[in-house]
Design a binder for these strands. Structure first.
Ligand SMILES: [Mn+2]
Ligand SMILES: [Mn+2]
Ligand SMILES: [Mn+2]
Ligand SMILES: [Mn+2]
Lengths: 226, 226
DNA sequence: ACCTATTTTTAGTTGCATCTAATTTAATTG
DNA sequence: CAATTAAATTAGATGCAACTAAAAATAGGT
């Protein structure tokens, strides 16, 4: 049985490794708002419990057991986010903090009932995939928006590493998951992008904002969502 | 800001006092599955924070602030129970433990959105009243089932202090909140009761079980629920 | 290859929530 | 009303999760 703190550390390690990155002690500490020394102690404890292997001064690697446990937490976090947005009417920039608490509620039945209630969603409100009961993730062919060429039609598919402030800004600009856009221009000067939505509205995104957006190529004919 | 343990102690004190009873250190400890010495320490802390007054060796009384905080917790607990039963399909004997966790999730917006989503219910799955935003409870005229006279029509309105095992048993006997029953007989010998439902099925309840049930008198003509 | 800056770990401390054991206070009863 | 019993509190210990400060190990630059 993991404590709440152990769960948060495990999830942080998983998230950092998942980005192809390395889960350094400092990285984890920064993500959790604690200090490196505290993280070292927790990593030792997680290693003790067989969730990861820890080579002091080198780094950390999740075991199969650790990976499975982390995916369960990710599943719970994203299911709750989905519930908050789709059922309770939260904005997508208001859910993270609450889901951060809800993910620790312990009940297999709760998680599975919630998933079923929501229609076993494959993606959360930020476009992140929701692991299924067995930890499997839906696969998609995503591209960074900033790599899209002028004239290309794209559909917003995910916001990666989006702070609440970024999400709020995007919301105000009318950008959400599923939104169809046409790339109008890449500005050489500041690498900002000009886009146009299906209603003909112009949307300008700074390089910093656009860099967080991932898209699917959108066939000109078919269309899923406004 | 209260810790989870402080919240649980406050809620226990409120529940024990509410039954007209006294919230003795031992009562609280038993309710929480801890020891009296631990409770003393927590009561001192809650008194420190202005939620209750504690006269050592005498007893404890909630302040207005403490009462309000306790009612908020009760509200959250019962709203979650309602959600679990009405939306996620939990049985009424499966929700307490999970709600015991969910009640500690901190978010005003979550509580209010959940209440609204559920249609601002006034009673939880066990027939207990759900405090509104301002801590107000719906009033009803309830009577103990064991005081009902032979031939009387009653509607099950609440199960008081029901363990999960009791709730499960009642469920198996087909008894739930809103159920209409006619009292057929009180057995002198063991104080058990014979009842009949609207479909003509006979239900026999031991004194121990019947003692937990509270009813409204049911007018012979009008009828709310099967 | 050595020195230095950075990262990580270890050691020792604090606050919290529990426990057991000892003490104190209150209640009961002969 | 004194003695006994029961209840509550205090004292001291433990485990957890954090911290700061000190030590150790690694990585880079000359
Ligand atoms: Mn969390
Ligand atoms: Mn998300
Ligand atoms: Mn609780
Ligand atoms: Mn209830």
């Amino acid at each position: 049985m993991l404590t709440r703190s152990e769960e948060d550390h495990l999830k942080a390690v998983h998230a950092l490794l998942g980005d192809g990155g390395r889960a350094s002690t400092n990285n984890v500490a920064e993500r959790l708002g604690t200090k490196a020394s505290s993280v070292t102690v927790m990593l030792k404890k997680l290693a003790e419990k067989g969730l990861l292997s820890h080579a002091p001064y080198y780094g950390v690697k999740l075991t199969a057991k650790g990976k499975a446990a982390a995916l369960k937490l990710v599943r719970k976090h994203r299911l709750w986010e989905t519930f908050l947005v789709e059922r309770l009417g939260f904005a997508w920039d208001e859910v993270h903090e609450v889901a951060e608490q809800l993910e620790h509620v312990r009940s297999e039945k709760l998680t599975d009932s919630l998933a079923e209630y929501l229609g076993d969603p494959a993606f959360d409100p930020h476009g992140d995939p929701i692991p299924d009961r067995n930890g499997r993730l839906a696969l998609r062919d995503l591209h960074p928006l900033v790599a899209a060429t002028e004239g290309q039609r794209v559909r917003i598919a995910a916001v990666k590493d989006g702070s609440d402030a970024l999400l709020h800004l995007l919301g105000r600009k009318g950008i959400g998951i599923g939104k169809l856009l046409v790339v109008k221009a890449h500005q050489e000067f500041d690498r900002s992008m000009e886009l146009e939505d299906t209603a003909g509205n112009r949307i300008s995104l700074s390089a910093q904002v656009a860099g967080h957006l991932w898209v699917e190529s959108a066939p000109a004919t078919k269309q899923r969502k406004g």
